[in-house]
Design a protein around this nucleic acid. Structure first.
Length: 432
RNA sequence: GCGGCAUUAGCUCAGUCGGUAGAGCACUGGAUUGUGAUUCCAGGUGUCACCGGUUCGAUCCCGGUAUGUCGCCCCA
């Protein structure tokens, strides 16, 4: 434990059985939810050429400048990178296979992403995202639908305390004009800018508006607003999105300071945020990126997508006591003696033939210790096989989940009758 | 990448004003022959994160490293 070589890489976590079962249940909810909106799965490599991310995400973003796991393939000198996000690879796949050439596409993927950041709760160097992307849809309807999807998912998962913020970044030209005026404005008030703001002035001036420095609040409130730079088409698109949200009764806040970290976004951007995860409050975020496909060498194709942070959602599920317990098997088979053990294998396989989950006691152990394991497994029933039973071609079927203090009822059952008897009992038991 | 706090049995934690350590849970065995969860009895739990310094002596004080955590930055 203290030996460095035996530890997982910093910021990369093992997900142990109790939690992994929750992950699998989560993934099942995700798949059925995506299917209900007609999204289809796609799986891309975890490693892509480094240049793909530089072109897609933007050279001067934090991700590309200092967070990517990049390396040279020692065998052929290729520059490769562990994907820090999924959209770039997805777009690459869409272009490479002409997926959106004939018709619009709705795609999703889930899996690991890698960013070399300082780990803390809700932020890891290997983390998981569910990514949802649409290609070929121009209007605000897909943006709105994707936002509605989030609302439904939180409901499906039973999560509370997640709220929606939206904004429009307009088109690149509109954003560029605003940015220029914003920088000019800040430069005109240079004496008010703190150190943070100075640094951001030319890298990410929109972020200055997020300042917590009271001395800058008033100056920021007067700064040029991006919405004032949007043309009629951009405004109409934004209004189209909001119309659907209002119709659907999904509450939202327009946050003019909401900007996405990646360069490729335009028009609609949105974030689902919670105040229950500390500093990492964003559980789901995305927006439209109409220029990216063309920028990466494909035919001009409008696109819109979002990604969810799986670790953050899992943390919310756990915090809100929605995690559920470990997944128990139906039956634990206790046996002792050679002929009994041989029969036990046959019995266990026979139950599995009937769709039941069965743990066969492996290794030695007294009846007592086997029964303890049976109880600990969470199984509803123990099937007990000793020499008596084996000789008679029977087993003892014992209930392990009777009322507190009550001894579990048990009965002798012919081996051939066991599956039918058990299935009836399990159905009765689950109905109670 | 920057700053604060933390690191003691498998888990959750207590403790030693510096003299090599405890509780609960869990685990294992037992309380009449082949029966769990309840009860009773017994038992191992540990280089007190790692490396170095101060000291007769450090788990405790100091420094560094690692990891976690909170915040900043950034983001899912």
């Amino acid at each position: 434990m203290s030996q460095k070589t035996l530890q997982a890489v910093r910021g990369m976590n093992d997900i142990l059985p109790d939690e992994a079962e929750l992950w699998e249940r989560f993934e099942e909810v995700i798949r059925s939810w995506l299917h209900s909106y007609g999204y289809r799965p796609v799986r891309m490599p975890i490693v892509e050429p480094t240049g793909l991310f530089k072109r897609a995400i933007g050279e001067v973003t934090d991700i590309v400048e200092k967070e990517m796991y990049s390396f040279e393939d020692a065998l052929n000198g290729e520059q490769l990178t562990l994907r820090p996000e999924g959209t770039a690879g997805c777009v690459r796949a869409v272009i490479q296979h002409s997926l959106a050439a004939q018709q619009p596409r709705r795609l999703y993927y889930m899996g690991q992403m890698f960013r070399h950041e300082r780990p803390q709760k809700g932020r890891y160097r290997q983390f998981h995202q569910v990514g949802v992307e649409s290609f070929g849809f121009t209007g605000p309807d897909v943006d709105a639908e994707q936002i509605l999807m989030g609302a439904r998912l939180w409901d499906d998962l039973g999560l509370e305390g997640i709220s929606l913020q939206i904004n429009s970044l307009g088109q690149p030209e509109e954003r560029a004009r605003h940015r220029a005026e914003l920088i000019a404005y800040f430069e005109a008030h240079a004496e008010l800018l703190d150190e943070d703001a100075q640094r951001r002035l030319h890298t990410n001036p929109l972020r200055i508006l997020d300042t917590k420095n009271p001395a800058m609040q008033e100056m920021c409130a007067q700064a040029p607003k991006l919405l004032d730079f949007l043309g009629p088409e951009s405004l109409a698109h934004f209004e189209g999105v909001q119309q659907v949200l209002r119709d659907a009764g999904v509450p939202y806040t327009v946050n003019p300071r909401l900007v996405r970290g990646l360069d490729y976004y335009n028009l609609t951007v949105f974030e689902w945020v919670t105040d229950r995860l500390g500093a990492q409050g964003t559980v789901c975020a995305g927006g439209r990126y109409d220029g990216l496909v063309e920028q990466l060498g494909g035919k001009p194709t409008p696109a819109c997508g979002f990604a969810m942070g799986v670790e953050r959602l899992i943390a919310l599920i756990q915090d809100q006591d929605l995690a559920g317990g470990p997944e128990a098997v139906d039956v634990y088979v206790v046996h002792q003696g050679e002929s009994a053990s041989r029969l036990a294998f046959r019995v266990a396989e026979g139950l599995r033939d009937n769709g039941m989950a069965v743990i066969l006691n492996c290794g030695s152990g007294s009846f007592k210790s086997q029964m303890k394991k049976a109880d600990g497994s969470g199984a509803a029933y123990a099937v007990i096989i000793g020499d008596d039973e084996a000789a008679a071609g029977e087993v003892t079927l014992k209930s392990l989940r009777s009322a507190d203090g009550e001894k579990g009822e048990q009965q002798r059952v012919k081996v051939d009758d066991l599956p039918a008897t058990l299935m009836e009992s399990i159905i009765d038991w689950e109905e109670e």
